[in-house]
Amino acid sequence: MRIGYIAANTFREAVRDRVLYNLIVFAFLMIGASLVLGQITIGVERELLVNLGLAAIAFFGVLIAIFIGIGLVSKEIDKRTVYTVLTRPVQRWQFILGKYFGLVGTLAVNTFFMGCGLFLALLYMTHKFERADIYVLIAIFFVFLQMVIVTSFTMLFSSFSTPIESAVMAFCFFVIGSFSTDLHSLSASAKGIVKVFATIAAYVVPNISALNVSTAVAHGEAVAGATVALNLGYALLYSGAMVAAAALIFQRRNMK
């Protein structure tokens, strides 16, 4: 129950933050711009709109996850708001879980509205919904899973470092994770110490690239049910491990 209260307060904090609305407005502008770009191209209007629209949702969603995520724990410690929470019957792991679910809830609502924006743009362009649009919906769900993962490792970094350090580490993790397929290829082909490092990195950094199906769905390609299940399971396991690590660090941490 206390996790729910902390999550609700985190959600309230996020929705009262102007940065969130600025980013959402930019995301809608991007979707609008892709609609205009689609109209001046011939034959690939839908493909362009889906590609750019999904990229806008992912880019701004990840920005929100990182910018709000870096302050989730460290800001509470810096401003000492955590004092009046942790001296109540709240366990430290409950605090971490509550903060995490609060931000994930915020991102879910954002993704929902940005997804609605993309589908409205699609409807405006094609005047109807097609079967292939279901796969766009799945791609949006995968983008949300990316945010779930990004929030988890951002929160882990936030549990032991300053907001700026957390932001740099989280951004690096996200970028490397976006090329994780290449990292796996490198670990398969490399030898010696490079192979060791590439293998470790390939499994430690999140496999963000597996969650990016934008190009495929933009071309109207189907996404298999097994892929959905695997990606969902992977996102839950990876983010669960990150949040557990954050809770372990926070449990031992001295509040300054």
């Binding site: 307060n9 309230r12 904090e13 933050d17 000492r80 708001t81 004092y83 009046t84 709240v90």
Partner: peptide
């Protein structure tokens, strides 16, 4: 902890509330 109350020095609270 349910039976104690604590006022920190120069308290800062969630100012959006």
């Amino acid at each position: 902890r349910a039976q104690i109350g604590f006022l920190p020095e120069q308290p800062y609270f969630y100012d959006y509330l």
